[in-house]
Amino acid sequence: MTAGSRTSEPSHGRVKRWRDRLVAYGWLVLVWNLLWGDFSWANLLGGLVVAGVVLVFFPLPPVTFGGRVRAGPLLVLVLSTLGELVAASLRVAALAVLPGHRPHSAIVAVRMRVPSDLNLALTAEVVSLVPGTLVLDVDRDAGTLHVHLLDTHGSRQLAENKERVRVVERRIVRAVGSAAEVRRLGRPAERGT
C-alpha cells in the first residue's frame, strides 16, 4: 500500500512524499548537530551530506502523515503516557521485588478502529509503555494488535485491559489523526476476535 494509491490525485501524493522527505531531512540534520553537541557551519554541512546519504541509501517506507496535530489532545496524550509510564514502572518493579509472586498472564487480540500504519505503529509503541501490556505482534492487514498482559486474572480484567488499549488508540487519533479518523472513533467498537 503506497501513499500514492490512497490519494485520488497522483501529483498530490508526490507532493506529500516530498514533504515527508524534507521533514525527515531536516530532522536528520538536527540530530547530527545535536550529536556533535553544537551548531557550527561544519556540523551543518556535514549534517546535510550525511542526511542526504542516509535518505538515498535507506529510503523511507511510504508511511505518510495524513492527519493534523491538535495541541490540546497532544498534551493529554503526552501527560497521560508519562503518568502511565510511572505507574507501570512502579507496578512492574513491585511485582519483580515482592517475594512469592507468580504473575498470571494472557495474550489477547485487540482490533484497532483506525487501521492505518501510522496509528498501528504509534499505538503499539505507547501500549508497550503503559501498565501491564506488551505488544507481541501486529497483524497489519486485519489492523489487530496482539497484546501480552502481565498479571491478569479473570475475564473482567481481560476486558478492562482491552479497553485500555482502545483508550490509548483514541488518545493518539485525537492528537494526530485526520478528521475522518476521529469520526471513526465514534462508531461502536467492532467485536474483537
Binding site: 509510564l85 507501570a88 514502572s89 512492574v92 507468580r102 504473575p103 509503555l129 501498565p131 507481541l136 501480552h148
Partner: peptide, 17 residues
C-alpha cells in the same frame, strides 16, 4: 519472572523510566 514474555515487561517499563 518466569518466562520470556513476562521478562520483557520488566525490561521495558521500569528500565525505560
Amino acid at each position: 519472572f518466569p518466562d520470556v514474555l513476562d521478562r520483557m515487561h520488566a525490561a521495558t517499563k521500569p528500565q525505560t523510566l
